[in-house]
Amino acid sequence: MNTSASTSLSTTAAPPSKVCADCQVYRAARLKKLGVAVDKWDYIVALAGNPNTGKSTVFNALTGLRQHTGNWPGKTVTRAEGGFEYAGRRFKLVDLPGTYSLLSTSVDEQVARDFILFGRPDVTVIVVDATRLERNLNLALQVLEITDRAVVCVNLIDEARRHGVQVDDRQLARDLGVPAVPTSARHGEGLPALLEAVSEVASGRLICRPHRLAAEPPAIRDAVRELRARIQAAYPHLPNVRWLALRLLGGDEHIAEALRRGEFAGLETESRLEAADASDAQPQLTVP
């Protein structure tokens, strides 16, 4: 329902209300909200995150659409799309269903995972709740296992402050190997920095070296090692070999089927990321 209602009304999207007229997004003046009018785009941006982290608020703030948001886990069920223009480039933004994980087999999780994997977004923005960082990092780390072009949006930073919690975004960015931007989407705070980071990663000016699990759990280490070697032999340039090995060990037929159809061959990237998958490699952020 959200999509249909907001779609039909998006063209009449209200002029910036008073609250937002003086916020940084507008002062930045490089952002043009496109609503649903995205037919041609330069980059695709996926928006992933736990339920109830303000993902839809970020989506609305960037596109000018009005997806309903609420303080409830699980408001956005369908995939919503919108667009914005920033620094002369057109971005298509896809709001994925909010999930706790990408490992289980529920429909929501499959939709989200398939888009990050096969939709080949230029950037995946992972919205995490600053007040519940640990739980939210569960999903963030799973996303980083799949893709190496990501930006972590540490949302609800105002709530975190109210709760007496401080998040060191530079430390977080170092540990995760991708940009981490503190935001408060409801107040438009931090969005210029988020846009900048998204555009840097999308254009390839910023190369991420995402965090990969430090070590496999001992019980599965040998099995993973053997399978990784085999996958690497078949697909030398795949950016997410270990993740694929884990999925196959988990008996994920969906992924096996994709493998049979040859979809993974298309996911191989240039050599720039080969090293990133080595589990002993330190994650780091390279800013040229």
Partner: peptide, 11 residues
């Protein structure tokens, strides 16, 4: 099943 996975995902 689903219940187990959900509890794990919740931490």
């Amino acid at each position: 099943g689903a219940e187990r996975r959900r509890l794990l995902d919740l931490g």
